[in-house]
Computed example of a mutant assay.
Amino acid sequence: MDGYGLRPLAGGHSGETFLAEAAGERTVVRIYAERGRARGPEAPHVDAAVLGLVRGLLPVPEVLDVRRPDATTGAPGLLVTSFVPGERLDLLLPGLDETSRAAVGRSVGVVLGRLAMMPLPRPGLFVDGDLRVEPLPAGDLVDFVEAHRPGSALEQWADAAYDGLLQVADAAQQLLDAVRRTCLVHSDLNPKNLLVDPRTLAVTGVLDWEFAHAGMPVTDLGNLLRFDRDPAFAGAVLATYTEHVADAPDDVLDLARAADLYALVDLAARRTDNPVAERAHRRLAAIAASGDLHAED
């Protein structure tokens, strides 16, 4: 795409996000090709609407243009946003000292808290630019695990390991049954999708909202702390989240780990897709073997 003034942005696995430069201005162009097209023709408008919903409350880019796919010409959908400055947190975090890791953890905790306090009336997936919600598929976490086994990497698990996973899923579901409130969920809130000012350590951008939905307030906390468990960073995130979320219970980290099982199972079932899926597979195997939601591989 270089010949058209577009350069792929690093950090994602979709290969559909590009940096555009013209007349000294930089914008970000999301082309809804293979992966984006699979979400349906309304995907660009859903993403634009979510950005509009949170803008002013969270640091997100401004929507400059949005287009549905054109069935006549075959042109894919398109979303153009402003360029947000900052350094990706996954690149910045390893080089920070303990004090700075705690400081950036507090900044991220504020973002998590604001998300968790954006109430929505019912859980589900956004289906159009009005953010109408379609109910999530029926079933609980055990059903989700069972549905993801056939034909996936989980089918290769020994019976004992798989039975251990089912027991963990059942225990996690019992925890999640206590979660009554629904909020806006980013659902891919990991350091790769967070931009940070390296001087002030403030979050400057929350990116890649393609998995956003209405769900549980603990989901994004579990996603963020899935792999990033450094005590200074994770402790600051958790403390700040708890401070900002009015109904955060004492066992909020247990709930967050339980909620994150959905994503871990989905990723682990596709372990050969990318390095994150492979790492999720190892983490899920450790959890199943130990029966501990907090287990590390």
Rank of each mutant, 00 (worst) to 15 (best):
A75H: 07
L89V: 13
D2S: 12
V276S: 06
V185G: 10
F18D: 06
V110A: 09
G36P: 04
L78V: 10
D97N: 15
V179G: 02
L184G: 11
L89F: 09
A172I: 02
L6M: 05
A268C: 08
T17D: 02
L195D: 12
G74R: 07
E243T: 12
A48E: 11
L284T: 14
L264W: 06
A269R: 03
M216K: 03
D47Y: 10
R55K: 14
P85L: 11
G235L: 00
L141T: 08
S107E: 01
P119S: 06
T200E: 15
P137D: 08
L89K: 10
D170K: 06
E42L: 06
A295D: 12
I31H: 06
V142Q: 06
D163Q: 15
G36Y: 09
V265R: 03
S14P: 00
R30W: 13
R229F: 01
V206P: 07
A178V: 13
L166K: 14
A263P: 00
A38K: 12
G124I: 13
E25Y: 02
R199K: 05
G12P: 04
R229E: 13
P119F: 03
L224D: 01
V111A: 04
V218R: 00
Y241W: 15
G235C: 01
T73V: 04
A268L: 04
L201H: 02
A48P: 13
P198I: 04
R270D: 14
V54N: 04
V50E: 02
G222M: 07
L176F: 11
L51E: 09
A178G: 14
D90E: 14
E278I: 00
D177E: 15
A202G: 06
N193Q: 11
E16N: 02
A269V: 03
V206I: 12
F144A: 05
R101T: 06
T272Q: 12
A232W: 01
P69C: 03
M118A: 08
A234N: 04
R132V: 05
I287D: 10
Y32F: 15
A234G: 09
R283K: 11
G151E: 12
D254I: 04
A49L: 08
L64S: 10
G5C: 05
S100F: 00
G124E: 12
S187K: 08
A178F: 01
L53T: 10
L57A: 10
L79M: 02
G36R: 08
A158H: 13
H213L: 15
H294G: 10
S187C: 09
D220H: 09
S152L: 03
R132G: 14
L224F: 14
G86K: 13
D220A: 11
A232E: 00
